[in-house]
Structure formats: structure tokens, C-alpha cells
Computed example of a mutant assay.
Amino acid sequence: MSPALAAAARRLAEAGVESPRVDAELLAAHVLGVGRGRLVLIDTVRGDELLRYEELVELRARRVPLQHVLGTAAFRHLELKVGDGVFVPRPETELLAGWGIEHTAAGATVVDLCSGSGAIALSVADEAEPALVIAVERSPEALVYLRDNARPFASVRVEPGDVTDPNLLSDLHGRVDVLLCNPPYVPEGTPVPPEVADHDRAMAVFGGADGLSVIRPVIKLAAALLRSGGVVGIEHDDVHGDDVPALLRADGRFTDVIGHIDLTDRPRFATARRV
């Protein structure tokens, strides 16, 4: 397998893929149906396997996201189905999900806005003991993946909806314990890699000229949905480390506003408690 891996890594490096060797190994493991760590034990591959491997490497070299090529994305303890039309969850979002899990008491009602593939909502359902998790998504394409991923979780309810609608989930006003959101937040005009520009929907990535056009109504919606003492966590761009906490404070209905950094020491999400 080593010569094929080396050739694949070279091809991916030439194409500008950030982690060519890792991606080459993950694609090989996928084709062979083994764990990545067992590749060193494989010295020969069948012709049909090699052909399939080369096809997948070429897809990745064309900057199709690795997760789309594999058909799944790893997120915390989950393997989520992803593909064209749904935002691929990023590792940094695992921090917001973890914060939400820590603040979800047994029997809680949790809302995940801009749910996409369901990464945050399903992680809360998987690792905590909520009575109900409502995953809200507006994209018809993303809803297909969200519903499929949510099927094994009895506590999860999928709701089509636009988070900029102030009447969204009006039956739950004042009843939600935890609200989480990873909204589109990249300022328009920001350069993004081909994997994002060509495969993630713009509506799932960009948040208006300043990147805050979705976050502003989300804060208002959170204030309406949360009970007194309920908590909110919102992911944001690393340029918004001051802006999102300031918006939460300016709303006047939140206390304990805190900004959180990610594993690269960049501002990544803000949290607050409903007064």
C-alpha cells in the first residue's frame, strides 16, 4: 500500500490540500474497510480497490471536501452523514457542543438553531439526558441529512424554520433551558478555501456584510425562548470576539456573558444566562 499512499499524498499536495498524507490515509482506510492505524499491515491491494482509491483521491484533489468523499463527518462520538447541500461540521464546534452538554440537566429542553447535519443537537441527545432536543434548520437540502442523522434519537425533534423569524417556536417561549447555535457568521467577501466556496451553501457560511446578520436575530429569539436562568451559546467568527458578547450585553436580558476561545486561542463562541 505504501507506493499508492505516497503517490496519493503527492497528488493531494500538488492540488493544495492542507493535510495530504492524512487525507490519503483516510481515503485508503475507507476503501479497504479498515482503521487508519492498520494500513501499515497491508502490503497488497486488489486491482479494483486500487482503482476505487485512485478515483477517490482524484475527487479530493479537485477539492471536494474529504467528508463528502467519505460520505460522513466525525463529530465528538458521532459519525454524521453529510454531502452536497449540508454544512460539514468543524472540529471547533465540538467545544460549543461540549459546553451545551455540560449545561444540559436531565429532563431539560434544548434548542439547536441552524442545526445543519445535526452535529450539536445530536451530540447533546447522545451525551446528556434531555427530555427534548429541537433541531431547527431552514435549508431543504440540509433537512434531508438532519432527519436521517436524527432518526436513531427518540428525544430529537426536527423543525423546519428560519431563525430570523421572531415567531419561530412561539409555543416554547419562556420554556427552553439551553439554546445553542452555530449560525452562518463569516463576513461576506472573506476568502474561503475551495472546499467551502464550491461545496458549502453560501447561506450556511456567510452572515451578511459584517457576519452578524443572523446572530442579531438569534440573540433576540434566544431571549424570547429561554426561561429565566436558561443559557445560550452562540458560535461566531474569530473577528467577533468582542462583538457578540457586546450584543448579548446590549440586549439587556442576559447576564454572565462570557467569551470562549478555541484550541488555537481564537475567540470562538459566546455564552450568557437569561435574566
Results as ranks from 00 to 15, higher is better:
Ser123Asn: 09
Gly118Arg: 01
Glu141Gln: 15
Gly107Pro: 03
Ala97Thr: 14
Tyr145Arg: 00
Ala135Gly: 09
Gly107Ala: 10
Trp99Gly: 11
Glu141Ser: 15
Val133Asn: 06
Glu92Cys: 07
Tyr145Ile: 05
Ser139Glu: 05
Gly107Ser: 13
Thr93Leu: 11
Ala125Arg: 07
Ser139Cys: 12
Pro89Tyr: 04
Gly107Phe: 02
Glu102Ala: 15
Glu102Gln: 15
Leu132Lys: 12
Glu102Trp: 07
Ala105Met: 10
Ser115Arg: 02
Gly118Ile: 11
Val136Gly: 07
Ile101Phe: 12
Ser123Lys: 02
Tyr145Lys: 06
Ala121Gly: 12
Leu122Lys: 07
Thr93Ala: 08
Ala135Phe: 05
Val133Met: 02
Ser139Ala: 12
Val136Trp: 03
Glu141Asn: 07
Glu92Met: 03
Asp126Ala: 15
Tyr145Gln: 05
Thr104Asp: 00
Glu129Trp: 04
His103Phe: 07
Ala108Met: 02
Gly118Lys: 09
Glu94His: 10
Leu122Tyr: 10
Leu95Ser: 12
Asp112Thr: 13
Leu143Asn: 01
Arg90Ile: 14
Glu129Val: 09
Gly98Tyr: 11
Pro91Glu: 12
Ser139Phe: 02
Ser115Cys: 12
Leu132Glu: 15
Val144Ala: 14
Trp99Val: 10
Pro130Ser: 02
Ala97Ile: 12
Glu102Met: 13
Pro130Lys: 00
Val88Leu: 00
Ile101Ala: 14
Ala108Gly: 10
Thr93Cys: 11
Ile134Gln: 04
Pro140His: 05
Ala106Thr: 13
Glu94Thr: 11
Thr104Glu: 04
Glu127Trp: 06
Ser123Gly: 15
Asp112Pro: 05
Tyr145Glu: 00
Glu129Asp: 11
Arg90Lys: 15
Leu146Asp: 01
Glu137Met: 09
Glu141Phe: 03
Val111Lys: 03
Gly107Gln: 04
Ala128Tyr: 01
Gly98Val: 09
Gly107Glu: 01
Ser123Ala: 15
Gly118Tyr: 02
Ala128Asn: 02
Leu95Met: 13
Ala121Phe: 06
